[in-house]
Design a protein around this nucleic acid. Structure first.
Lengths: 415, 415
DNA sequence: CCCCCTTCGCTCAATCCTTATAATAAGTGC
DNA sequence: GCACTTATTATAAGGATTGAGCGAAGGGGG
């Protein structure tokens, strides 16, 4: 029943090349020797592949380091300017784009606020494309040098013949986002759920480093979660974002934005927390209002009660994740998740302990995200990086001409 | 961060051999030509590998079939008597073992009831070993012909240096089951959660055939679920069983056997349903009591209310699974799951629709398992089958002598 | 300054696997 | 008996990894 593909001797090379790139990317700079040891490939093979990579401009030599009395080892690293990637965060209140080089250094960024309740498809698509043009222009990077554009969106992403979006709280139904964006750009697009992209950012660069199996909880106005097992490469075109926010923690409970009753999001989403408190709060946006509520809890019993309940429900939701996935690490993220986590982590942990089975709970650590709210864009940018490391993304300006067998009368490539 | 292994040209052969075996196993009988088409391998490679497999006795020729005017194609199939597998279901009320040949035909079975509340580790281990000996003796299969023994157990299975079991409702904590069984048998052991093994059985042979991503709900006295994505081969030593029964559907709700409050199992587990009804029922075990309750619901409003609530909570739990995993198929199994499913599928579906997001719900079909309560043992037996198809299981009697480099002075194996 | 030693990186023959092509085998229909 | 069709096997070619051997690059001692 499971579908397995055959392998040819060519796949072998592609795969080992990719193994080397991944290893080098996360352990820069290092020598050929180190790579040979880390990957298990013979030094001959490493040399062969690295020569190819240097010739293509992907890898560069970067000085050398003494070895105990022998020939010094030449250090290798990935050419940061071989190509660039863009990460775009399509949030509920704004769209943010960032352009990175291959070391994930920000080269340019752009922000456009979204009017509340103004989430028409055309508007959002237009804003995304404008953000994209803005970072391209601002950075001075020619579009031919872009490896790809990652987009983190709310809602369920379905990968079929084309990428289609379902954002029930957003009012989107079967939106062919990739096709719509295609009208404004030729760059390769990688679209995924925002919780997933943030999760990948924390896993690669933040609080998830070293974890084999992590769950990242994204709490903002809405609530999502990303389950990442042993590196995202294992789900090539598979599982979409998990709608953790719309799991039921109280049958017959509060109304949720999606129309159902008793969902987690109806208790621990920022919008829901503020509604449950009910009284006016200082601040003109949700973020400052929630911060104010948390401050107020020091003195106001009503505010404290609302927050205690929030911790209780959030802990129950986290307990569910622990029982279902047995992760080694759970990371609280999203702007509201960071606020709540910094303030109430002990209460959340304790509620999770009560709701989860004791053994899987003991194997998990619950922490607060380290990367801040920009992690969605950073994580979106890792999508094209991933494709690049797997060998499926090459910048247009470096792409070789079409093979001659296909165009028998062509003149071939220049140079 | 993700760990990827290098490939050698030898792995390639192993892998393609395995691809062929999987393809042949699920599409017996078929010709070399068919295999070439199904796997994408060239007919030359298919011939080479098949010759090897025939030489080893794994594959046999089985007649031939006319082709439109040309040389008839020779049909191949897996030798059913190349080896045998055993599947053992460690349930809460009994232990059952079945011995199968490679076509999954039952050759022998054995049953031992467990006294209620008598789940001491030593007792259970002893019963398992006794069941194993019984099927071996009954079938007349020599133990050297056994490919492996699969064991489906309740609770969380953790694979570290050795396999360890945590069964919170069972009263087991960190039980090294594999080591304990090892005292009574030398056969290769494959231990997994019972919900997982039943899930695999339904996926391979039952209501899950053709699904890419299925969730199987196991409802008996307790409640569990198995998430199976595109063939279980993708999680080599990874994820343990999912404790779906201990996810929270009602914060602060009913007491669960595990000590927590408001878990799904406290509403839809058979034991919990009977408790919620509270009145005496005919029948001396849970199974007949539940059947009686379902019959009674035709006339008794109290019974009907209990069942309606059950459907409501079960639907909420299923909705969670839909939102978290977006499976194409959800299968109700376990003895209580089958009873409830046959009676109340429409109510369960409708509750799930209310609790899940509309898009992932629309992509899912909810059905009742086709294999009946014996599926746990059948599924457990698929674990060694899987190892066999992957090329990592060979019966002892056919194993080649140990390589001489390792035991330079040894006499090797007799045989 | 020269020589020995250590370690790194490259070259080359050997080995293995898949594939494309050609050859052989085994039937049908006239 | 002969053309034709289809299935399977033999053969040569191409691509990949590997282990051994060799040159390269520096340190240290006389």
């Amino acid at each position: 029943m499971p579908e397995r593909r055959r392998w040819t001797v060519r796949d072998l090379r592609r795969d080992n090349r990719s193994v080397l790139l991944w290893s080098l990317y996360f352990d820069q700079p290092c020598s050929r020797q180190d790579l040979s040891e880390a990957t298990g490939l013979s030094s001959a093979s490493v040399s062969n592949v690295i020569r190819e990579l240097i010739h293509e401009g992907i890898v560069v030599e970067a000085g050398s380091v003494d070895s105990d009395g022998g020939r010094p080892r030449v250090l290798l690293r990935i050419n940061p300017d071989y190509g660039y990637v863009v990460g775009i965060d399509v949030g509920e209140t704004r769209i943010q784009a960032e352009l990175f080089d291959l070391t994930m250094t920000v080269r340019a960024n752009a922000d456009i606020p979204l009017e509340p309740r103004e989430h028409g498809v055309d508007v959002v698509v237009d804003r995304i494309l404008r953000c994209l043009s803005a970072v391209l222009a601002d950075s001075g990077v020619p579009s031919g040098a872009i490896l790809g554009v990652g987009v983190g969106v709310p809602g369920v992403v379905e990968r079929g013949a084309e990428v289609v979006l379902y954002g029930q709280t957003y009012g989107w139904d079967a939106v062919p986002l990739e096709r719509l964006l295609r009208t404004g750009t030729d760059l390769p697009l990688y679209i995924d759920n925002g919780a997933n992209t943030m999760g990948q950012a924390e896993l690669w660069f933040g609080a998830g480093q070293g974890a084999r199996h992590a769950v990242v909880c994204l709490i903002g106005s809405g609530v999502g979660a990303s389950i990442i097992g042993n590196g995202a490469t294992e789900r090539p075109g598979g599982s979409s974002g998990t709608e953790w926010g719309h799991t039921t923690v109280m049958v017959g409970g509060r109304n949720c934005r999606c129309g159902s009753l008793g969902h987690l999001e109806a208790y621990v989403g920022a919008e829901a927390i503020l509604e449950r408190y009910g009284l006016p709060l200082p601040g003109d946006d949700e973020e400052s209002a929630l911060a104010a509520l948390i401050d107020l809890a020091e003195t106001s019993p009503e505010a404290a009660t609302v927050l205690d309940e929030t911790a209780l429900y959030l802990g129950a939701g986290i307990g569910d994740l622990i029982n279902l996935f047995s992760p080694d690490r759970i990371i609280l993220g999203g702007w509201a998740g960071l606020l709540l986590g910094h303030r109430m982590l002990p209460a959340i942990r304790s509620s999770a302990r009560e709701h989860a089975l004791s053994h899987p709970f003991a194997e998990t650590t619950i922490t607060v995200g380290r990367l801040g709210p920009d992690a969605v864009a950073l994580g979106a940018a890792t999508l094209p990086i991933q494709a690049f490391l797997n060998g499926t993304a090459v910048p247009a300006s470096r792409r070789p001409a079409a093979p001659e067998e296909i165009r028998p009368t062509g003149t071939g490539r220049v140079g």
